[in-house]
């Protein structure tokens, strides 16, 4: 415990990409063995999260966002899931080769997670206060009464009105927004270094979405957590993320800090995504959608997975898979033509 606190104290400076990374995902590969064949959900995934930093992982359904989150947490259903290669380093230690007991003690304590659907993710037969207090009782060996007090305190902190009175209420007795606040309270209970939020606001009303997201960001600052925000919502990302990783067919297509991505997207897929955002000042009649569908994960194209849908695809793209390469410092793209796209954009902007 003291060790992690010290490390966390040291990290309690502004988001800083030069400090030691909190989490490093290197060449991760995850497969699903199904009757239809082997689905390659994650194919060589790379990204890094630093203390206090917010990384948004952006992608369509089926791009491997949630599988990534579950693999980091170690809650992937295996089988059918199988980790075929790569490493996930938390403070330098590979989670994938760590003994299960050691890894379990990191879960919920150092790395915790918020799920999309709080109603199904909270246990229906236990009071919410009990579920929050369980964190303290199991990991901190607290007595029931003490743990309950901590739970009430946390419920208050995440903005649940009359927390003292509602601590023994059941999940179904709360509104969607309040339930997600309870999930958040449970996830931050033990002051984790890294929080993974898998579409935390997708299931909520639009008006509540902003409140919950604000709360999450407040807490992130307060606790100086690294945050991996998994979303398909480009609007949310622009407001809150430091860095963005755009995922497609289980790979990072492009990653850079948020301004860089919006200013000079250097991958045709990222450009397609950005063009598909409705603009309030837009003169165009129709939204630009990306043509076609994501590839079948059981039968990925030989070259770039985006090539069948890419307006710029050439024979090279269809035969050779581009690796994630530096465009400029801190900006990486997995496209054979990213340098060209980047220069064109810069040239056009200048």
């Amino acid at each position: 415990m003291t060790e992690t606190t010290d490390a966390a104290e040291q990290a309690r400076t502004a988001p800083d990409s030069t400090s030691a990374p909190l989490l490093e995902v290197r060449d991760l590969q995850v497969e699903f063995h199904t009757k239809a064949g082997v689905a390659q959900a994650i194919n060589g995934l790379n990204f890094t999260v630093h203390p206090g930093e917010t990384l948004a992982i952006l992608g369509e359904s089926g791009s491997g966002k949630s599988v990534t989150a579950q693999t980091i947490m170690g809650i992937l259903d295996m089988p059918p899931g199988k980790i075929a290669g790569g490493e996930i380093r938390y403070r330098g230690e590979d989670l994938l080769t760590m003994p299960e007991e050691k890894r379990r003690k990191l879960r919920g304590v150092s790395i915790s997670m918020i799920f999309q659907d709080a109603l199904s993710s909270l246990n229906p037969v236990f009071p919410v206060g009990w579920q929050i207090a369980e964190m303290f009782r199991i990991h901190r060996k607290m007595k029931k009464k003490e743990a309950k007090q901590e739970a009430v305190e946390l419920m208050r902190r995440v903005g649940i009105p009359a927390a003292e009175k509602r601590v023994w209420d059941f999940p179904h007795e709360f509104s969607g927004g309040m339930r997600q606040r309870i999930m958040i309270a449970m996830a931050i209970a033990l002051d984790p270094d890294l929080l993974i939020a898998d579409e935390p606001t997708t299931a909520l009303d639009v008006t509540v979405q902003a409140q919950v997201m604000d709360l999450l960001l407040d807490l992130q600052k307060e606790y100086n957590m690294g945050l991996i925000l998994i979303t398909h919502d480009l609007g949310v990302v622009a407001d809150v993320a430091d860095k963005i990783a755009v995922m497609y067919a289980g790979r990072v297509m492009e990653s850079a800090d948020v301004y860089e991505i919006y200013a000079s997207p250097s991958h045709p897929y990222t450009r397609g995504l950005l063009d598909s955002i409705p603009r309030i000042d837009g003169g165009e009649e129709r939204l630009k959608a990306i043509e076609g569908l994501p590839p079948m994960l059981t039968n990925l194209p030989a070259g770039c997975p985006f090539s069948p849908r890419c307006p710029m695809a050439t024979d090279l793209c269809r035969t050779e898979r581009p690796e994630l390469e530096r465009v400029v410092d801190g900006h990486y793209s997995a496209c054979h033509y990213s340098a060209q796209i980047y220069d064109d954009l810069r040239g056009g902007a200048a």
């Binding site: 879960r107 997670m113 993710s121 999930m183």
Partner: peptide, 10 residues
């Protein structure tokens, strides 16, 4: 989902 949450709680 809630069993997955319980696992994620460590």
């Amino acid at each position: 989902d809630y069993v997955r949450t319980a696992t994620a709680k460590g």
